[in-house]
Amino acid sequence: LSCHYCHSLFSGKPEVLDWQDQVFQFCCRDCCEDFKRLR
Rank of each mutant, 00 (worst) to 15 (best):
W19K: 13
S8F: 08
F26A: 02
C32Y: 11
L9Q: 11
S2D: 15
L17C: 07
Q25A: 08
L38Q: 14
C3E: 01
Y5I: 07
D18M: 13
F10M: 10
C28W: 00
F10I: 06
E33H: 12
D21P: 05
D30T: 12
S2M: 14
L1D: 13
D21E: 06
V23R: 15
W19A: 13
Q20C: 12
K13F: 06
L9W: 06
L9V: 09
F26T: 02
F35T: 02
R29D: 11
L1P: 02
Q20T: 12
E15G: 02
C27T: 01
K36A: 07
D34A: 11
D34N: 09
C3G: 00
F10V: 08
R29S: 09
S2A: 12
Q25V: 10
G12A: 09
H7G: 12
F10L: 08
D21T: 09
F26E: 02
S8Q: 15
K13E: 09
L38C: 12
Q22Y: 12
L1T: 12
C27L: 00
W19D: 08
Q20H: 08
F35Y: 05
Y5Q: 13
C27K: 00
C6W: 00
V16R: 09
F10Y: 05
D30P: 05
L1V: 15
Y5S: 10
V23M: 15
H4T: 13
L38S: 10
C32Q: 07
L9Y: 06
K13A: 08
D21Q: 10
C6G: 00
V23D: 06
F24T: 08
K36R: 07
L1Q: 01
C28I: 01
R29E: 09
K36L: 06
S8A: 15
H4Q: 11
P14W: 02
K13I: 06
S11A: 03
C3F: 01
L9D: 07
C28T: 12
C31V: 00
E33A: 08
K13W: 02
C27Q: 01
Q25D: 11
C6V: 00
L38G: 13
S11Q: 04
D30H: 07
Q25F: 08
D34T: 05
V16L: 07
G12H: 05
V16Y: 08
Q22R: 13
Y5D: 01
C28K: 12
L38E: 15
F35A: 07
L1Y: 10
P14H: 04
D30R: 10
L17S: 04
F26D: 01
D18F: 06
F24E: 05
F24Q: 08
C32R: 05
H7C: 11
C31A: 01
S2W: 07
H4I: 07
S8C: 14
D34E: 09
R39K: 05
C6E: 01
D34M: 13
C32V: 10
D30G: 10
F24M: 13
Q20M: 15
R39E: 05
F35P: 01
D34S: 05
C27R: 01
Q22H: 14
R39N: 15
Y5T: 09
Q20G: 15
Q20N: 15
F10A: 03
Y5P: 00
K36H: 06
L17Y: 04
C31K: 00
F10H: 08
D34I: 05
P14G: 04
D21A: 07
R37E: 06
V23G: 09
C32K: 13
H4P: 07
H4F: 12
C3S: 00
L9S: 09
D18Q: 11
E33V: 07
H7A: 13
R39A: 03
F26K: 02
R29T: 09
R29I: 09
F26V: 02
D34Y: 12
F24N: 09
K36Y: 02
F24C: 12
D34R: 06
Q25T: 10
C32N: 04
P14I: 04
S11Y: 15
F35Q: 03
C28A: 10
W19S: 15
F10W: 04
Q25E: 14
G12D: 04
H7W: 05
Q20V: 10
